[in-house]
Amino acid sequence: MSEEIYNELAQTVVVGEPEQAEKLAQQCLEQGLDPLDCINSGLTKGIRRVGELFASGEYFLPDLIIGAEAMKTALGVLEPALTEGGQGREVLGHAVLGTVEGDLHDIGKTLVGTMLTANGFDVTDIGTDVSAADFVQAAQEANANLIGASALLTTTMSEQQKIIETFKEAGLRDQVKIMIGGAPVTKSWAEKVGADGFAKDAISAVALAKRLVGAP
């Protein structure tokens, strides 16, 4: 019985049906199922399948994003129940992602967030036009071990450096790995500003993130 609903839950993620995912998650709780099992046997299975379909080329980015959206909606129902029960979801790391101050470009950062979510990270997306101080604050609140700062303009790239400096000033530089990205960002820029890594797109950002947190 529970196996069936887990599969259905996984399927809402694979097909990308956020509303249905939310409804099923509620049903799970009403039936008294363990929220952690719902996540591990349902949602995680679904998002893995989405990841496989994307990797094989069958799925496009919108399929991936809407699938992740379905997972997020269901997690919104299941995670509070998990916390109440004193449990936690197993994740590869806690990432805080944002676009730097003065820069409104949203898409690259959002894609990285989706890809990280699909690959087992807990992601807090703090939006665009985010100051260095707000990056630090969000990192503390989320207990993050991974920071991603996106800049799409040659004029806002310098903010990435400022973020790294601000983490140093706050005495938190050793506690986080900082990766940077965005169209004008290059490997040499990442080295120059002292970032831990640079990724040119969302797919390589996943490999980089895994390497930085020491995940397999």
Binding site: F54, F60, L61, P62, I107, I203
Partner: peptide, 8 residues
């Protein structure tokens, strides 16, 4: 056009 896989 967005590359459907890399968003480039």
């Amino acid at each position: 056009v967005m590359d459907p896989h890399t968003a480039e």
